[in-house]
Design a protein around this nucleic acid. Structure first.
Lengths: 191, 191
DNA sequence: TGAGATATGTCAACAACACTGACTTATCTT
DNA sequence: AAGATAAGTCAGTGTTGTTGACATATCTCA
């Protein structure tokens, strides 16, 4: 465990500017929180598989390829490029790794022999299953988590509340408190 | 608009392996979809600000710094490092850009003069507001979107359904159909 | 059949953003 | 005064993205 996110000595010095509105009209108070929660949730969400991938010398790019090839066997290169939104050259670099090390196989298309259909090998499926497992675990835990007892639940609508619950529950439990404290600090500063 | 995500000629060649379970016990059927939706949603979510940032010669790293400094004025370097989970060297590179170009200011700590408290300048706040605006717009749209009329809503629980609704609605509308089609393809292949 | 389009692969150079390791300077704590 | 802590910096490296330019195999259509 590293340092805590929350401060103690730095008691919110006032910024030398305007006194921002208390959840102004177009500001979308809930949305501001969601932006941040999305950041933290996604960070932890990809952090889990990252640790596994590192043991294989792979990165996130490899993960994405593995995931989509595993889930949509027979995917073509063009389709994969379109899903990932990266260039052919970027894809090829990681795809080559996966093929060379026997996690993915190519198969010449039947109807169009120019195409290379992609499939996971058994070891590719096994690795992907490992990666999926840790992500599913986190998601299931987030879905099963009890709803937050939100003190200040004004008239925002429950959609925002449940999105917030979900994302907050996606965050690594050990850090949730720190993040809650951080986000509470905002209310202190801008009020 | 580029190519469509969905295929037509490649009619799901059967992968030469096991016949995967139809939403097996520990597999977490909903979660598999959520993994993918999280990928697409996050991709589009950060895509909006990316376009704005590019006009300033900034990247995502700059965005993250701006966001947190704007939201938590007076943040110290150590706190920011802990939030972003990057190294001091990585942070310094982008922070220097932001300071040199007048978007962020440093202020020596009052109680501890070793600290450098970070604040957005007016232009920093303006830029951040721009970035926040497009992200809030997407989130608000997602929260306001009507719930999906899910055909196959078994006994999964509504938590998963609303998380799915939210993430799907976060995806760029023009691409939602393609992604739905892609994900439908999975059911075809593994069934 | 032959021309042009398409699917894929590859070389080379470059940029953004992360990392490690090693130090320096200023300031606080004890 | 000694050691810890906050911040800044230099130098080198790795992953993953980008352009631009081509090469090869295959398909489509006139």
């Amino acid at each position: 465990m590293s340092r805590a996110i929350t401060p103690d000595a730095n008691t919110a010095v006032q910024a030398p500017g305007e006194a921002s509105l208390p959840n102004g009209p177009a500001t979308g108070g809930d949305s501001d929180d969601l932006i941040e929660l999305l950041f933290f949730a996604y960070r932890d969400f990809v952090g889990d598989p990252d640790r596994i991938l590192a043991q294989y010398g792979f990165g996130r790019a490899h993960h994405r390829v593995l995931h989509f090839v595993d889930r949509y066997p027979g995917l073509t290169i063009a389709e994969l490029l379109d899903i990932l939104r990266i260039t052919k050259q970027s894809l090829n670099r990681v795809l080559k790794d996966l093929i060379d090390q026997g996690y993915v196989e190519q198969q010449t298309g039947t109807s169009d022999r120019r195409q290379r259909l992609l499939f996971c090998t058994p070891s590719g499926r096994a690795l992907t299953a490992d990666l999926t497992r840790v992500q599913v675990r986190r998601i299931v835990r987030a879905l099963d988590a009890p709803a937050e007892e939100d003190e200040t639940e004004g008239g925002r609508g429950t959609r925002a509340a449940s999105a917030q619950d979900f994302l907050l529950a996606m965050i690594e439990p050990a850090e949730r408190a720190a993040i809650r404290r951080l986000m509470a600090r905002r209310a202190t500063v801008r009020a």
